[in-house]
């Protein structure tokens, strides 16, 4: 069973390394943030697996939980920062409608009225 856990851990590690491609390559910053988030979530699992292997999992749970929390905050902070940078500064009029280059919008059948805001 231990071998199985080690194998799972190594597999997770390899897949994390593969996800690193998205972090390195981009193409946009937000893609990198996404990749880092995926890696971070898996790190928490990896910590628990290591704890289980060393038979002291109760010590590692705190670490994993703390890591998961901080990873969550990091992701939110990075996303908020990215978002903030693309927001217009105050003197300009804030755009009311979403970005023009967003994917095409189709009106949901049940909503009525509301002019289309497709790109």
């Amino acid at each position: 069973m231990e071998q199985f856990l080690i194998a799972i851990g190594v597999a997770i590690l390899l897949l994390m390394l593969t996800s690193l491609y998205r972090v390195v390559r981009g193409p946009t910053v937000i893609d990198r943030i996404l990749g880092v988030n995926v890696i971070g979530t898996k790190t928490a699992v990896l910590i628990i697996i290591i704890g289980t292997l060393s038979a002291r999992v109760e010590m590692f749970i705190d670490i994993a939980l703390a890591y998961a929390l901080l990873n969550f905050i990091t992701t939110i902070a990075a996303a908020r920062f990215y978002q903030r940078q693309s927001q217009p500064v105050l003197p300009e009029v804030e755009e009311a409608e979403p970005a023009p280059s967003a994917p095409p919008t189709v009106e949901h059948p049940k909503t009525t009225g509301e002019g289309s805001h497709a790109a």
Binding site: L70, I73, A77
Partner: peptide, 13 residues
């Protein structure tokens, strides 16, 4: 750090 991060989360959200 975790306690401080909770306030940062509050400020972010």
């Amino acid at each position: 750090v975790i306690f401080g991060a909770s306030f940062i989360l509050l400020a972010l959200c």
